[in-house]
């Protein structure tokens, strides 16, 4: 019997019970409800409860104990949390600010119509489709003491001894950011280019007739009209900066001495390396709250909700 046939039979049977309610629409919605309940609602509620509990992992079953807001307090008084937060802000420059400017510049160059623009657009977009772990490994090779970058710098005589980019307190985070900028620029460029291509040409012609300079057109026409696209990029950048994990984990693991530790790698260590599930759950909700607040601020600051 076909699926539809089976469904119809069940529906008929439900009707046969002379129930007042027509169950048919609920039956069709059931698979989605089950998926959401099992994979979203239950973990969310369970983690929220967990964030107020202390989990003892010793013993076969383990044990949960109610501790109130102690987990949240533990996270917020942990100096490593604040160091990771500071690193995340720095990291967000690689995730959002630098690629936003680069992406906007490239989008404007491509939008103006240069020779070979389709190839250039494809070339800039390639890093976006490279899996993050692959990109991390490749950049680790390039930046390693006997990697391509050190070889090049030595060959042109800029340095005498190889630089240990990924093992340096000062350079490990910027090294990860380099890879992130490479990966994000094309992503933002495509979003901003779509925004630019949607702008009508006649508003620029009107400005040209008024004798406005290129800068004035960019400042007073392009930027304000591109605001919805920029807003999308900013919100995505903020959320992804807080969610970013593999970028750092693959290349430096947060080291050396937590020099490149960001919130998500620290969160992972608290929960799954130190098995501090209660504190980890609280950490997760703090991250969620931060992403929410920052996104709302970004939308409010830009003066509109028209994403």
């Amino acid at each position: 019997m076909s699926i539809t046939g089976l469904q119809n039979r069940i529906v008929r049977r439900l009707r046969f019970d002379r129930s007042e309610i027509d169950w048919k629409p609920y039956l069709y919605l059931l698979p989605a409800f089950v998926m959401i309940a099992v994979f979203l609602a239950y973990p969310l509620v369970d983690t929220f409860i967990l964030s107020f509990q202390e989990v003892v992992t010793l013993g076969i079953q383990g044990e949960k104990r109610w501790v109130g807001l102690a987990n949240y307090e533990a996270v917020l008084t942990d100096p490593l949390f604040w160091r990771s937060a500071k690193n995340t802000i720095i990291f967000s420059f690689g995730m959002l600010v630098i690629p936003l400017f680069l992406g906007l510049g490239l989008a404007m160059v491509i939008n103006r119509g240069i020779k070979g623009k389709s190839s250039l657009r494809a070339l800039i977009f390639v890093p976006v489709v490279v899996p993050i772990v692959v990109a991390g490994i490749v950049f680790s090779w390039i930046l390693s003491p006997n990697g391509l970058l050190n070889w090049g710098l030595t060959a042109v005589g800029l340095i005498e001894r190889p630089i240990r980019f990924l093992n340096s307190i000062e350079l490990s985070l910027p090294s990860v950011m380099l890879m992130v900028v490479w990966k994000r620029t094309g992503y933002y460029m495509v979003i901003l280019l779509a925004g630019l291509q949607g702008l009508p040409n006649d508003v620029y012609e009107a400005a040209k007739i008024m004798g406005k300079s290129r800068w004035a057109m960019f400042r007073y026409i392009t930027l304000p009209l591109l605001k919805p696209a920029i807003l999308i990029v900013v919100v995505l950048g903020i959320i992804d900066s807080l969610r970013a994990f593999a970028h750092v984990y693959v290349m430096t693991g947060g080291g050396p001495s937590n020099a490149s530790e960001i919130l998500s790698t620290h969160f992972y260590k608290v929960a799954f390396s130190y098995f501090n599930f209660g504190k980890g759950a609280a950490y997760g909700f703090i991250l969620f709250g931060m992403a929410l607040v920052l996104s709302v601020i970004a939308i409010k600051l830009s003066g509109g909700s028209e994403i």
Partner: peptide, 16 residues
């Protein structure tokens, strides 16, 4: 265009 001291009204108005 600006040297010509003209004003142009567009079909779709081209307002900002």
């Amino acid at each position: 265009p600006q040297e010509r001291k003209i004003a142009f009204v567009f079909q779709a108005y081209a307002l900002y």
